[in-house]
Design a protein around this nucleic acid. Structure first.
Lengths: 89, 89
DNA sequence: GGGCATTATCGTATTTTTACGATATACGAT
DNA sequence: ATCGTATATCGTAAAAATACGATAATGCCC
């Protein structure tokens, strides 16, 4: 994957306000909540799950199984790499 | 427009490798070429024109009429604002 | 094991994006 | 005025994104 493609992929992942909001929230609350995101956003649970999947596929967040629930958190290394790619423009 | 929405809009504009390539090229060649972009990318002229339109609508590039051709250049202020929004994450 | 809570996935409808060719528009040059 | 070049726009087809409800899957607790 070229740098341009990586950058485009990461940008695309953040190319929706809901996903920006999700990432920002995960960065704020260091403890990784998940169902709370559904409560915060005005979207159905399945829609939030889809957005989470897209962020996960882009590598911006990770999800760890924790009992019956899944605990998401931001991948700060990946975010840092994203910032560097943007700054390289 | 909230910060999240602005960030999402800018990210969406760069959420395609062709548009990343266009922006990067405009930043490299300070003189604003246009038809050259069509030669560089493996895309039809109309498709390139559409990508330019999206970048222009996001404010990342500007187009100035220069005789029969239109001269595009990157909007460095807007790009700087984008970088700041990303860094604020 | 049965029920409860949490999350993912499926199916689907609607909208948006992407890409192209064809056509229109604008301008300089002849 | 006509031609050629450069760019935008239109029309359209195919693919992808977005959103939802319904359903499945997972794991705790009784």
């Amino acid at each position: 994957m070229t740098n341009d493609q990586t950058l485009a992929t990461l940008c695309k992942a953040l190319g929706h306000p809901a996903r920006v909001a999700i990432l920002r929230h995960l960065l704020q609350v260091n403890s990784c909540i998940c169902g709370d995101i559904v409560n915060i956003l005005p979207l159905a649970q399945s829609t939030v799950s889809q957005h989470l999947k897209q962020l996960k596929e882009a590598g911006l967040i990770r999800g760890e199984i924790e009992g019956p629930r899944i605990c998401y958190c931001a991948d700060k290394d990946r975010l840092a790499a994203f910032k560097n790619l943007i700054l390289s423009l």
